[in-house]
Nucleic acid binder design. Structure first.
Length: 737
DNA sequence: AATATTCCCGTTTTT
DNA sequence: CGGGAATATT
């Protein structure tokens, strides 16, 4: 990520003697970078601004430690993303470090720890890892189980509450004790139920991995001590994004030796809403009084102009460590700000601009478009397609979220962990085998009553008898599971194949011939992935692969370059860099994002998010906004983002695009819409398939999206969008009836 | 039990 | 406007 101008060291160092080898590790570094790499024992904090060569410093330091004061096996490097872990691994390997260093994500490390110390942690060694979808379903089930209704109590809110509680390492009891509010009490109650169900099915969600690991380290001093002896040097990347559990883990792992190296940038802390505590990095020096602090302020990525603009913005934040950004790079062109009329025009303008760039000699280099919320991608996609530009979207959900993939994995999960009710429910009638909703409901209720896993329940004689006719199908399903258990003796790829063919899933997804239905292909891809995994980890068992599949679901879809425009949210942009960056939707309420006035949203974090986006740009930065944006079917007038006003005018090239003249495509559309609803007027009678006859009380919204308020015979008043509502105008001569 | 409507509700999401 | 879930329909 640090650009080539930095002079990548590519030669082989293996032939050199040890001292010159370590000398080579720092030969091309700046003073500050070198200081960080060569720092010996004791805590070290590396505050690394954007584009300052942070990754380079960490990898060099890891290699340096392994080659001087210790060996690779004693070094632990922790990242947040799989992508970062992989990159670090590759770069360290390229530095010719002996094998045996542990480089992985927090979650993977915790999962491994909990499996190897499952007894001390009080957890089943074959525990299931719950992904986000699993958690949502389990929360729903917990709500029902608590005697409440998911329609009354928003699942998302409870999910958030549980997430918040876990990030703060609070048990349901602690959560309720700390929050007296009525709603929080209810959430706490569901949380308790959730935990009960989760424990019963021998599963851990993502947060549990961290929390349980932190608890284990807290409570089992022997384990903690052994780990500290094993991992004598701990490096933690993106320290500004650590939450309480991660913080506890880091502290406990380095309690005696204090050999912790934290790297990060408080100005790039953008996951506060997920429990990350920026104070962890801000108070590092208090936590480790002997800490040495190294600041990397030289930027090797962006132009002077871009840095001055980004710096002016971030300087508005109060909660931060002052830090300047400097670069020896060129001055560069002005940062461009564009105000358009509508979101469509904004997108079209950006697309045209990219086209122009592409027609130039350097073709604009790598180009990215960032936005605050995913919903803004649609307009951009349409515009890019119209302009004939290839693009790629970094979407959060990927391969492992697909239905067919989750289905096979569910089979394997049930085999590995029969208590996994969630997975069992997923496959009990997939492929269809005559076990309908009513039967499933009955089983679920019984399971709830008896506090028994479904897999066991369906083997009970009395249950089968009570089930009546569908009992045969249920029994057949149970037999199938027993047959499939054979797969447990196989390596992951074989196990997959086995389950795919014997469960009938292969047949189910193989015959769907919809052209865009890539299900069969996806399954093949999954088998390939498993094969690859088995190749890389010859000793891995099926559990290990399942864990990998749960934790690695972020198969980074974003590939470098390829001449395609990259679309992503600002959050996804962290750690990346592009020659040209567009940030669209620079509007109040969108960036900074706010849903209702004075919600708890943290403007400083929003500013950091904007800062992260801006500092991804190497040469060109463009910020845009629309004066009108569609929200819930209607065009809403927007207010431009306050962040734009915080930028130094002298560095900007500001243009306000008026309603662009030629809009042939649209006017035709508009005309059609106008014609279609020309007969509509206030007072006319209409018929609705459900509500019957009614009278139009009001019409508004304009030619682009007509809306009508209708009073029905039963006295109810309803609003409709004409384009979509199944409303029919009643002819005048029909009124007689 | 599977398909067709209508209704409901909209942040960000490393693992 | 659009997806997803709850409900209505055959």
């Amino acid at each position: 990520m640090d650009g080539l101008r930095f002079g990548d060291y590519t030669g082989s160092v293996s032939a050199l003697s040890k001292p010159s080898r370590t000398a080579a590790l720092v030969a091309d570094l700046t003073g500050a970078q070198r200081a960080a790499v060569e720092h010996g024992d004791g805590p070290l904090l590396v505050l690394a601004g954007p584009g300052s060569g942070k990754t380079r410093v960490i990898t060099r330091r890891a290699a340096y430690l392994a080659g001087t004061v210790t060996t690779a096996a004693h070094v632990l490097a922790i990242t947040f993303t799989n992508k970062a872990a992989r990159e670090m691994q590759e770069r360290i390997a390229a530095l010719d470090v002996e094998a045996g260093m542990t480089v992985c994500t927090f979650h993977a490390w915790c999962a491994r720890l909990l499996r190897t110390h499952s007894r001390q942690a009080g957890i089943a060694p074959h525990f299931t890892v719950l992904d986000r979808d699993d958690r949502r379903r389990l929360v729903k089930s917990a709500i029902e189980s608590a005697g409440l209704s998911p329609t009354h109590l928003p699942v998302a809110a409870v999910e958030r509450a549980i997430g918040d509680a876990k990030c703060e390492m609070q048990t349901p009891e602690a959560y309720r004790a700390s929050r007296p509010g009525w709603q929080e009490q209810t959430c706490g109650h569901v949380y308790a139920e959730y935990e009960k169900l989760r424990v019963r099915m021998e599963a851990l969600d993502f947060d549990d991995l961290l929390v349980s690991a932190a608890r284990l380290l807290t409570e089992a001093e022997q384990v903690r001590g052994r780990l500290e002896d094993r991992y004598r040097y701990v490096l933690i990347d993106e320290y500004q994004d650590t939450n309480l559990a991660q913080y506890v883990i880091a502290r406990l792992l380095t309690r005696d030796r204090q050999n912790v190296c934290a790297t990060g940038d408080p100005d790039q802390s953008i996951y506060g809403w997920r429990g990350a505590n920026i104070r962890n990095i801000l108070t590092f020096e208090k936590d480790y009084p002997t800490a040495r602090v190294v600041c990397l302020e030289d930027n090797y990525r962006s132009t002077k102009r871009i840095l001055r603009v980004a710096d002016a913005l971030i300087a508005r934040n109060c909660q931060r460590k002052e830090k300047s950004l400097r670069t020896g790079n060129a001055e560069g062109p002005a940062v461009v700000v564009v105000e358009c009329e509508t979101a469509e025009e904004e997108a079209a303008w950006v697309a045209r601009e990219i086209r122009t760039l592409r027609d130039q000699e350097e073709r604009g280099g790598e180009v990215a478009v960032f936005y605050r919320v995913n919903s803004l991608s649609r307009a951009m996609e349409d515009a890019l397609r119209k302009e004939g530009l290839a693009y790629q979207i970094a979407r959060g959900v990927a391969f492992y979220e697909r239905r067919e993939i989750k289905d096979v994995l569910a089979y394997l999960r049930v085999l590995v962990n029969p208590a996994d009710d969630l997975s069992l429910l997923r496959i009990i009638n997939t492929p269809p085998r005559g076990i309908g909703g009513t039967t499933v409901d009955r089983l679920v209720n019984l399971a709830r009553e008896r506090e028994q896993p479904l897999a066991r329940l369906i083997t009970e004689e009395d249950v089968l008898r009570a089930l009546g006719r569908p009992a045969a199908a249920v029994q057949r399903f149970d037999c199938l599971l027993k047959e499939l258990a054979e797969a447990l003796t196989l390596a992951a790829p074989r196990a997959l194949e086995y389950v795919l063919s014997y469960s009938g899933l292969r047949a189910l997804f193989g015959r769907t011939e919809n052209m865009e239905d890539a299900a069969a292909g996806n399954l093949d891809e999954l088998v390939s992935a498993a094969t690859l995994f088995q190749h890389d980890h010859p000793d891995a068992r099926l559990v290990d692969w399942l864990e990998y599949a749960a934790l690695v679901s972020d198969v980074d879809t974003v590939r470098e370059g390829a001449g395609r425009v990259t679309l992503m949210t600002l959050h996804a942009a962290k750690g990346l860099e592009f020659d040209t960056v567009f940030i669209v939707g620079m509007e109040d309420g969108l960036l900074p994002l706010r849903r209702d006035e004075e919600d708890a949203s943290d403007v400083e974090e929003e500013r950091r998010l904007c800062f992260v986006g801006m500092t991804r740009a190497r040469r060109r930065l463009v910020l845009s906004r629309a004066r009108y944006r569609m929200a819930r079917g209607a065009a809403i007038r927007t207010v431009r983002s306050g962040f734009l006003d915080e930028l130094p005018r002298a560095e900007l090239e500001w243009s306000c695009l008026e309603d662009s003249a030629p809009r042939a495509g649209r006017s035709a559309e508009e005309q059609a819409s106008a014609e279609r609803f020309a007969d509509w007027s206030v007072g006319r009678l209409v018929r609705h398939p459900l509500h019957g006859l009614g009278q139009v009380l009001a019409l508004d919204g304009g030619p682009r999206s007509w809306r009508a308020a209708v009073l029905f015979r039963d006295g109810s008043r309803r609003a409709f969008i004409l384009e979509h509502a199944p409303l029919e105008l009643v002819a005048f001569d029909e009124v007689g009836d």
